[in-house]
Computed example of a mutant assay.
Amino acid sequence: MSSSPIAPESPAQALPESDHQCPLCATHGSQPVLHLVQRRKPCPRTGQRPPADERDYLRCGECHLLYLAPSQRLDARAEQDIYDQHENDPADPRYRTFLSRLFTPMCERLAAGASGLDFGCGPGPALARMFEEVGHPMALHDLYYHPNPAALARQHDFIVSTEVIEHLYAPGDVFRQWLGCLKPGGLLGIMTQPAADDLDALKRWHYLRDPTHVCLFSPTTFAWLARTHGLAFEQVASDSVIFRVPMS
């Protein structure tokens, strides 16, 4: 069944205290800023309308992360059912053009033959194939489609993660894991749609129609990550950033 656009609703009931701890920086005191209701269309066969999907989003005052209340997350099975509907064909020229917003600036900054990791590559690792086509050996890791713990136990010249970080339950832990998997001077490229500060814009934001988008990053959040971890940081496209770890 398809869904109608999200509309703002009245405030939700009180959230559990644990929901107020930021999943990125672990700071307590995040405040609810948005209660959304996604109304479902009636079933064409029965005419019955499923219950509305209600979600609450909080904003961290320290790192500025916008995140779905952890108590309202889907279970793993429901998440994978949504992921299985994604169609990311490595041969699709439109998808390759989309990925080029991160791929091209990464290539401009990589040494010849640099090897990388595509973290969260999905069932069709298009970005890894693009890097391999220009001479960069790639390892793959995806929790659901390409589990590869060995790739996380060694270091790489670069890591790319496209349309992944918004799905992570513990993005702070994963970010530190990425940094531990990078050689000195290594690059970390991330693609995700930026979260606006304006609440009216957020109410219209298509990204919030996907309940698997649990952590939403803004340029302010990425700048916080760079300061906290001592990284150089570049915004190379509206939805793409590159971090560089120090040489020592």
Rank of each mutant, 00 (worst) to 15 (best):
P44S: 12
F158A: 10
L110E: 02
G113C: 06
H86P: 14
R109F: 04
R129Y: 01
A237H: 14
Q31G: 06
I6G: 13
L152D: 15
P5I: 02
G116N: 12
F119R: 07
F243H: 09
D84M: 02
N148C: 00
F233Q: 05
E234W: 11
G180W: 03
T104F: 10
A128T: 14
C107I: 12
C121H: 13
E54R: 15
R244Q: 09
H156Q: 13
H28R: 14
T220I: 02
F222T: 01
C60W: 09
N148A: 04
A14R: 14
N88V: 06
F222G: 01
E54P: 03
Y67A: 06
P16E: 09
A196Q: 06
L58A: 00
S4P: 09
S161A: 13
S161H: 03
L140K: 05
T46W: 14
F233E: 02
A196K: 05
P70I: 04
G113W: 05
Y144E: 09
C25P: 14
P23A: 05
H136P: 00
E62A: 02
F131G: 04
S100Y: 01
M138L: 09
H35S: 14
P16L: 03
R101S: 07
Q72L: 07
H20G: 08
L216S: 07
Y83V: 08
Y67M: 08
R40S: 12
L110M: 01
L202S: 15
D84G: 02
T27E: 14
P51G: 12
P93F: 01
L58N: 00
D210M: 02
F233Y: 14
S218W: 08
E87T: 12
V236T: 05
V241P: 05
H141V: 11
G185M: 01
P125R: 12
P171E: 11
H20N: 12
S30I: 06
D198A: 02
H141T: 13
D200K: 02
L65V: 07
P137V: 09
G29M: 04
S18P: 03
H141Y: 13
R59A: 14
R40L: 08
P42L: 04
P246I: 06
A237R: 13
A78L: 07
A196D: 06
P147G: 10
R55V: 00
L74Y: 13
P246V: 04
D210Y: 05
G185N: 01
D75Q: 08
Y67S: 07
C60Q: 08
E17Y: 03
T162Y: 07
E133C: 06
F103Q: 14
D198F: 00
E108Y: 01
L199E: 14
E133F: 03
C107K: 11
